[in-house]
């Protein structure tokens, strides 16, 4: 991604023709766009509205008056109780440790592998690429038992490294970053080679900075995937002190009856950090492009 070349987000829509209409068309276009976005947003947010409503109601209110979204009385009990009913704070920390570590390491490993696949010609390149994509295709339900047995054989059950290491490379990130590296102008790389830089130098000083937004995007996706992962941490650990947030929240789901208020309160609390990360990444997108465009 040639962030250096990337366009500054225009303040006005680019002129469509050389006629004298642009401003009116532009404004109408913007109004229509915003209207569409508002409608889309309303549909998108609908389940979250329900979740928020459920989190501020008692269970009896929710099940007794299910057709309305408005609480009979607004209660904060769910948000207060959730910290006691499960060790929310510790599980939050566990989740941060797990997801954070995996993300940090995986972005690096994925970038390296993606760089090799995008920029180097070597025998078997196509086969390796396809193999990597194939790893995306088998449902986890099927690899559950073999992976579990492998971890048990290694003695990695209930350990932090058992939790982290199997996840530090993922095909999605490699695939995505390969696209990003393919978009970097070859000339930039070649120029660096002409200057005598080593491959590592080129990678760290040229390729990575140029694909900043893509790296951030992959980091975001990996963070999300691991933050919300229920099955993997539960597969590897039985020790309650190592449990992550999804595992804790799952305890409010019963076979027959669930504590919906607590469940939704927990789910909303758990997603706030992810929203913050997303906003941070998106700002960097826009900011990054804006500043480099000025050079």
């Amino acid at each position: 991604m040639s962030a250096i070349e990337a366009p500054v987000a225009p303040r006005r829509p680019p002129p469509l023709t050389r006629s004298s209409r642009p401003r009116t068309v532009g404004r109408l276009g913007t109004v229509l766009t915003v209207a569409t976005l508002v409608v889309v947003s309303a549909v998108v947010l609908l389940p979250f509205v329900w979740m928020v409503s459920a989190s501020f109601r008692t269970q009896g209110d929710l099940t007794g008056n299910p057709t309305t979204l408005w609480p009979a009385t607004i209660t904060f009990d769910n948000y207060v109780n959730i910290w006691q009913r499960i060790p929310f704070g510790r599980q939050l920390l566990n989740t941060v440790a797990f997801a954070g570590t995996v993300t940090a390491v995986s972005v690096l490993l994925d970038a390296m592998a993606a760089y090799a696949l995008a920029r180097f010609q070597f025998p078997g390149r196509g086969v390796i690429f396809v193999l990597i994509i194939v790893t995306l295709m088998l449902p986890i339900q099927v690899t559950f038992v073999p992976v579990y047995n492998l971890l048990a054989d290694l003695g990695w059950i209930n350990s932090l490294h058992g939790l982290v290491i199997p996840r530090v490379a993922d095909a999605f990130g490699i695939f995505f970053l390969r696209q990003a590296f393919l978009s970097v102008p070859v000339e930039l790389e070649d120029a660096a080679r002409i200057d005598g830089a080593s491959e590592w130098r080129i990678f760290f000083r040229v390729m990575l900075p140029l694909t900043g937004p893509a790296l951030l995007t992959v980091a975001l996706f990996n963070l999300l995937a691991n933050w919300n992962d229920l099955l993997w941490p539960l597969m590897v650990t039985t020790d309650p002190s190592m449990q992550t947030l999804p595992a804790g929240l799952a305890l409010f789901k019963g076979e027959h009856v669930s504590d919906y208020g607590l469940l939704m309160a927990g789910a909303l609390l758990a997603l706030l950090p992810m929203v913050a990360v997303f906003l941070f990444v998106q700002r960097r997108f826009i900011e990054g492009i804006a500043t480099t465009g000025l050079k």
């Binding site: 339900q141 559950f144 038992v145 579990y148 047995n149 048990a152 054989d153 059950i157 229920l230 099955l231 539960l234 597969m235 039985t238 309650p240 595992a247 799952a250 305890l251 789901k253 076979e255």
Partner: peptide, 21 residues
């Protein structure tokens, strides 16, 4: 004690027995 949701325990229990865990 370890309490887990029904479907998680269903997936873990037999493999755990088989692995000695």
């Amino acid at each position: 004690m370890t309490i887990q949701p029904g479907d998680v325990q269903a997936q873990k229990l037999l493999p755990a027995y088989s692995a000695g865990e």
